[in-house]
């Protein structure tokens, strides 16, 4: 079986692993790791898509997509971790300013 198909399958594996982690794990940091895993899997599929076209040179468009995807996943991780930290601080200290009735 050709290399692109192999990579696509590995990618699919990573996506399902990430999805599983995102669904089952409850701790925000674990969920963020799972999200990153799922992202990498998706990008792997995209990269394999680039090689799948019969042309000798790989098709540049998926690479552009992957680049954007990486930026987005990084941003998601940052937001997730920041929220997790803020929430941890809020739950311990119960200080949480503006703790108005949710």
């Amino acid at each position: 079986m050709s290399a692109p198909l192999l990579y696509a399958l590995v990618g699919a594996g990573l996506v399902s692993l990430g999805a599983w982690g995102l669904v089952v794990r409850t701790h925000p940091v674990r969920k963020t790791v799972a999200a990153n895993l799922m992202g990498s899997g998706a990008f792997l599929i995209l990269v394999s898509a680039a090689r799948a076209t019969p042309a000798e040179r790989p098709d540049p468009v998926p690479h552009a997509l992957v680049l954007t995807g990486i930026v987005v996943t990084m941003a998601t991780t940052a937001v997730a971790l920041a929220l997790a930290k803020r929430r941890a601080a809020a739950s311990e200290g119960h200080s949480g300013e503006g703790a108005s009735d949710g």
Partner: peptide, 30 residues
């Protein structure tokens, strides 16, 4: 809002939208 409830809600919203977006991205890839 900064309250614990708001932060919880934001987190679960974030992970849900990440899950949705990733599924969408995989779809786009395919």
């Amino acid at each position: 809002k900064g309250s614990k409830a708001a932060l919880d809600a934001a987190l679960s919203y974030l992970f849900a939208s990440v899950l949705g977006a990733m599924t969408y991205l995989v779809g786009v890839g395919l």
